[in-house]
């Protein structure tokens, strides 16, 4: 979560049209465009929050999307679950989205391996998150170690800065949530699950 207080989250929500992270839907759309999902492909949003992206995937991309979040969710197609243990059969999904969640987890590798489990071979993993721009190799290596080939890696720190600027304009403290380090950046990645 980019902003830890409830009031802050409400502001962030309002500012980003409910999506609550840098780039809004534009990064998600960009990632989807670089995947070739079958019509009615099955896609999971891991850490879906209010489920706004799930709705977007259904309405704008014609995907059979569902979401899970560790926090209580209102109703189906959302379920309350941990990203470490998804309520999904092995190899059942065409895609997993995980936006702005991995950086909060104590064990990102475990989550990535779980995504690998539920994805079909050649299924897509879409990630967007904060990262340390001086150590971007770490995340890429981790993906490879967990059985993924990276097909898209883009720096979107500008979107992060724009969100910071927007928060500053609203008089919110952007320093605690966005700029922990000078080298903090934002990436968008798409990876494909390898054959074995």
């Amino acid at each position: 979560m980019l902003y830890s207080t409830a009031a802050g989250q409400r502001h962030l929500c309002a500012m980003t049209g409910g999506i609550m992270r840098p780039g809004g839907f534009s990064l998600t759309d960009r990632a989807i465009a670089s995947c070739s999902f079958p019509a009615k492909g099955r896609v999971l949003d891991a850490g879906c929050g209010t489920g706004i992206v799930v709705e977007h995937l259904r309405s704008h991309h014609g995907l059979l999307a569902c979401g899970i979040d560790i926090a209580t969710c209102a109703s189906r197609p959302f379920a309350q679950a941990s990203v470490y243990s998804l309520p999904v059969k092995t190899g059942a999904l065409n895609g997993v989205l995980c936006e702005c969640v991995l950086s909060l987890l104590p064990d990102a590798g475990r989550a990535l391996r779980e995504f690998g489990r539920v994805l079909a071979v050649d299924g897509y993993l879409i990630l967007s998150d904060l990262y340390d721009r001086e150590q971007q190799g770490c995340m890429r290596e981790l993906l490879q170690c967990c059985g993924f080939s990276i097909i898209l890696w883009e720096d979107h720190t500008k979107a992060l800065r724009e969100l910071g600027a927007l928060m500053a304009l609203q008089g919110l403290d952007h320093t605690t949530c966005l700029e922990t380090k000078k080298s903090t950046g934002y990436y968008l990645a798409v990876a494909r699950k390898d054959t074995c």
Binding site: R161, E162, A165, H174
Partner: peptide, 16 residues
């Protein structure tokens, strides 16, 4: 106030 604090801060962020 908007010009000197919030806008100035936003300018600074965007100027990296």
């Amino acid at each position: 106030e908007l010009a000197l604090t919030r806008m100035a801060e936003a300018e600074k962020i965007l100027e990296d």
